[in-house]
Amino acid sequence: MKKIVLVTFLFSFGLTFGMINLDNSIVKENQTAKEVTANDCVDATFEQMEVADDQGFSEAQVTCLGNVFYAGCMGWNVDDLWDSCVN
């Protein structure tokens, strides 16, 4: 009986510990992916803002375009927002 309780306890402990570790690694992996995406989007946003600047847009327009581009890069649906920067 004692053996069964001990085995059950160790199994549960191992399972729980394993799941915590697994969960942590998933969270960490997601966080890393998110951070990389955000950093990539910052770089890409800078690049596109320079394009808008080279085309003679005003600072306010360049900032607005940068905001919409960054949101789009981060996965938001911005189809209806572009016009707000140029109208």
Partner: peptide, 15 residues
């Protein structure tokens, strides 16, 4: 990316 394609499309229409 989709964002870049949309941006280029807008920029070219403004051009």
């Amino acid at each position: 990316s989709q964002a870049k394609q949309s941006f280029y499309k807008l920029m070219n229409s403004m051009s």
